[in-house]
């Protein structure tokens, strides 16, 4: 098609569009909804036993605050980077709390390495963990997907990863409020793992498709 024809056909078909609200507002909206979902989950599960006591433990408190901050900043970063005229440097925004958060996870793993009593991690325990986790993070991921669907043509990979990080961090914060076991590793594994899985599948299938196309051409 000739470019001038394309221009004409595009210009003859311009229904009015609703402008996006500023990215900060959109991020806030998403965070509010996330807070609502998390609040409901916490209410239905009940706050974990000895929550106040746990908060006095500095490692737990740092973990909590840094994961919450990571979630908020990653959300803001996702919404900003999704726009074509914003810098990619927004992706660095959640880095500082993320480092703090990951270091506390690392510490917990280390501390919990030696005294794992037999039977402490059971299949039922882990699967109920996973169920709660899926139930909390799935609606958030879906909502973000709908809100950012236009970005598919721009920077899908970094947006998907950043969005998954935001969902993971928010879910981790909420789960540490009502979930007795520390499920951070599982949450990160689930959300980022799924994202990486999809990206990997896309990469492999993309290559496979072009390979079969090549084979057909021969």
């Amino acid at each position: 098609m000739d470019t001038s024809d394309l221009l004409l056909s595009l210009a003859t078909n311009v229904p009015p569009v609703k402008r996006l609200r500023p990215p900060m507002l959109r991020a806030l909206g998403w965070l509010l909804l996330a807070a609502a979902i998390m609040g409901l989950m916490t209410l239905s599960h009940g706050v974990r036993p000895q929550f106040a006591e746990h908060m006095r433990d500095p490692v737990f408190a740092i973990n909590m605050v840094s994961s919450l901050l990571t979630g908020i900043l990653a959300t803001v970063a996702t919404f900003f980077v999704s726009l074509p005229d914003r810098s990619r440097r927004w992706l660095l925004l959640p880095a500082p709390p993320l480092i703090a958060w990951l270091s506390t996870i690392g510490y917990q793993c280390f501390a919990g390495w030696v005294p794992v009593p037999p039977g402490a991690i059971t299949v039922e325990g882990a699967s109920s963990c996973l169920a709660t986790l899926v139930l909390t993070s799935l609606p958030l991921s879906l909502l973000m997907l709908v809100m950012l669907r236009y970005t598919a043509t721009l920077r899908p990979t970094s947006i998907v990863l950043m969005g998954s990080l935001a969902v993971s961090a928010i879910t981790a914060t909420a789960l540490s409020m009502f979930h007795p076991l520390d499920a951070t590793a599982m949450i990160l594994g689930w959300n980022l793992g799924t994202a990486v899985l999809f990206l990997g599948i896309a990469a492999i299938f993309g290559r496979r498709l072009s390979n079969t196309a090549r084979a057909k051409e021969r």
Partner: peptide
């Protein structure tokens, strides 16, 4: 043409209070 089609499909993401050039160049580069 690819850029023009992309611009058309995501024209709602442009905020008129911000300069148009960077928005356009951002899409074009991608």
């Amino acid at each position: 043409q690819d850029i023009l089609l992309t611009l058309h499909s995501i024209r709602h993401t442009y905020d008129p209070s911000r300069p148009f050039g960077p928005w356009l160049v951002g899409i074009a580069n991608r």
